[in-house]
Design a protein around this nucleic acid. Structure first.
Lengths: 195, 195
DNA sequence: TGCTTTTTGTAACAATTAGTACAAAATACT
DNA sequence: AGTATTTTGTACTAATTGTTACAAAAAGCA
């Protein structure tokens, strides 16, 4: 179903991705519409015509981020390798992202800490992302218990909650301490909890 | 040593505290100098005359926050009660702060996630606060091991890193999920790791 | 009483902010 | 070719931003 009217000169997905980088790096408040225009290459008219306003565009970036990384994390956690190794891979993968050049950590964590109190869209996507991770971990920890890969006196719930907590802690500390050696120790320390 | 000149009509400490609330709630970028004037009751002249500029005032609030809560946390962790109970108290105390009305979590965590990448003062105080917590935990976990209160095959370091990670994770998740029941479960799950 | 010093209130500054008005441009359909 | 529809570029808005200028006010000291 082709549209009538002048065709767009830009790729919508690419623009959302470019805008995401701006919000990710600077945060919502510190990102000006001018920054967004420059980063996306769009003029103000095109940006407002296509996305409504700054906050609507922000929402699109949150959704896109969630969908992208949910897929990646799900992939890591469903590989045909031992459960513990998969979990460790999730942690080392996150750590590697956190220590890439110009990394700003996890966009959704940053957005949640900055704004979830005052922005229900941020609240929603932060929540969705955390719940997804929790459910996925629950599934594979159960898998590990059934296959006797994981043997623990703790309940499945305790194991999962503790892992989720460590995951968010690692990513937050990586933004604070910024020391890869320390991060690696934390991953190892976390793994001892599902020994 | 009394100063010459017109005396101040305000209490410096009170002003820093009021300004802290603004930065804490809105973040640095979203806090306008007008917000700061209104919250502190000072005119623009007085504020700039006394604190230089917005960022210098921000620095004062970071320092004050660190010093205040460091004292509280240290007090919790050095009570004459079992080590495990002290650690649990640190977690429940933090959780209670996170679920107070209009809570914005830990100011330093929020500031670090928002700005530590681009603001060396935030970086510094976030780092100092984390290191303080780490060192204090190290001291009392050692204490717990020597008194045989804590018996674990894990190294002291692993225990401490895991606790620190869980602490930051809990506080970050409390900003994201905002569910006290879940938070309580996480504290319990964390405590099973130093069983 | 004057002189110095500091604080205070008012007014202003240039720059930036998010968002809009409007006409020209580019397409599809008739 | 002409019309409808959408996108685009330029210019603009009104409000807000952080910061400063300056004179009046309030104290100590001579």
């Amino acid at each position: 179903m082709k549209q009538t009217g002048r065709p767009r000169l830009f790729d919508q997905d690419k623009v959302i991705e470019d805008a995401m980088k701006v919000f990710w790096e600077k945060g919502y408040e510190a990102s000006s519409t001018d920054d967004l225009c420059k980063a996306t290459g769009l003029g103000r008219s095109s940006l407002y015509n296509a996305f409504g306003n700054k906050h609507d565009l922000y929402k699109r970036t949150l959704k896109k981020y969630h969908e992208q990384w949910m897929a990646v994390q799900l992939n890591i956690l469903t590989q045909p390798i031992p459960v513990k190794k998969r979990i460790e891979n999730l942690f080392t993968w996150s750590m590697d992202r956190d220590f890439e050049k110009n990394s700003n950590g996890c966009f959704l964590i940053k957005a949640s800490v900055e704004r979830s109190q005052s922005d229900s869209d941020v609240q929603k996507w932060g929540d969705v992302h955390a719940k997804f991770l929790e459910q996925t971990l629950l599934k594979i920890v159960n898998e590990g218990i059934e296959s006797h890969e994981i043997e623990s006196e703790k309940t499945v719930n305790d194991l999962v909650q503790s892992l989720l907590c460590s995951y968010y802690g690692l990513r937050t500390l990586n933004a604070t301490i910024r020391n890869k050696k320390v991060a690696e120790q934390m991953v190892q320390a976390t793994m001892t909890n599902i020994a």
